[in-house]
């Protein structure tokens, strides 16, 4: 096993390239890898294709900061704080390409990649305009029964970024709560960068095999980043910082407000 401890700056500059397909962990504002997202913004990465199911501030910030070319998603929203305005503005002007999905079609596209397959079938989707306009979905017949099904193209992430609770220095990771699709995303990706609340001793991993959720073979870089999901929640450690999300939701109402937020909270700050 190889030691994989990096700083946030090193990991993002070494393992994320302009134009990469980047799967982003977490759901809504829960266990979102926000420290990694802010570092991607600081390093000015460009033309990323970001992938996730139900996303919030993470996607909106990357889009607003000009890091994104294409978005594969089922929903982008700030929940009770309203609309993800950067997403809305750039979708309306055509500055970002949208690959709109249902939750399960985007998840299944990642599952396909994790299984080393070019596509997977799924039920549903037919009859929806999401299906009709999609370049990622098509109708197929079951080769055995002739039943109509949807097929979804695999999305193979160049990099997956996630935030987890604990890992050892070799990248044996523990997610101690809702896994969301983070494990699938790590399985599917060429490289996975994980920030963790705590670095734990390798012997602790050895003595509690049942607690490891992602073994080291899927992990490229481990970063010790307490509060790395902030202002998203990290189950069992902290809840989301609603005041900060509210501040963000106010700021993004105008491009100028968003730029001011970025300057103050991201660009002139280190995680």
């Amino acid at each position: 096993m190889k030691e994989k401890l990096y700083t946030l700056q090193e990991a993002v500059s070494s393992f994320i390239n302009d134009g990469d397909v980047v799967a982003v962990g977490g759901v809504g504002r829960n266990r979102s890898p926000m420290a990694l997202v802010r570092e991607i913004v600081r390093q000015g990465k460009k033309d990323l294709h970001i992938v996730g199911r139900e996303k919030g501030m993470d996607f909106d910030m990357l889009i607003g900061a000009g890091c994104v070319r294409k978005v594969s998603f089922a929903l982008v929203s700030l929940e009770e704080f309203g609309l993800a305005m950067n997403f809305r503005r750039k979708a309306q002007t055509g500055e970002i390409e949208l690959d709109e999905h249902a939750c399960n079609s985007v998840i299944t596209s990642i599952r396909a990649a994790a299984m080393g397959l070019p596509f997977l079938p799924l039920r549903g989707m037919l009859g929806s305009d999401v299906f009709r306009v999609s370049k990622s979905l098509t109708e197929i017949k079951c080769p055995f029964t002739g039943e109509p099904l949807a097929a979804v193209k695999a999305i193979k992430p160049d990099v997956t970024i996630i935030h987890a609770h604990q890992a050892d220095k070799f990248g044996n990771v523990r997610i101690q709560g809702s896994p969301f699709e983070d494990i699938l995303k790590a399985w599917a990706a060429e490289k996975t960068i994980v920030t963790v609340e705590e670095i734990i001793d390798h012997e602790e991993i050895r003595n509690n095999t049942h607690l490891t959720t992602i073994p080291h073979i899927y992990i490229t870089a481990v970063i010790h980043q307490p509060k790395g999901a902030w202002p998203a929640s990290c189950d069992r450690y902290y809840d989301s910082d609603r005041e900060e999300v509210k501040t963000y939701a106010q700021a993004i109402k105008t491009p100028e407000g968003f730029q001011e937020y970025l300057d103050r909270r991201v660009l002139n700050r280190r995680d």
Binding site: S77, A91, A102, R123, L126, S128, D129, V133
Partner: peptide, 27 residues
């Protein structure tokens, strides 16, 4: 509809997206 108001390619309003609906509403 949770996707767009107006034409899809040039929407008047881009909405958040339908989450699970295009999959589950069919089955």
């Amino acid at each position: 509809n949770l996707s767009v108001i107006g034409p899809y390619e040039k929407p008047k309003v881009r909405l958040p997206g339908g989450a699970a609906s295009a999959h589950l509403c069919a089955i």
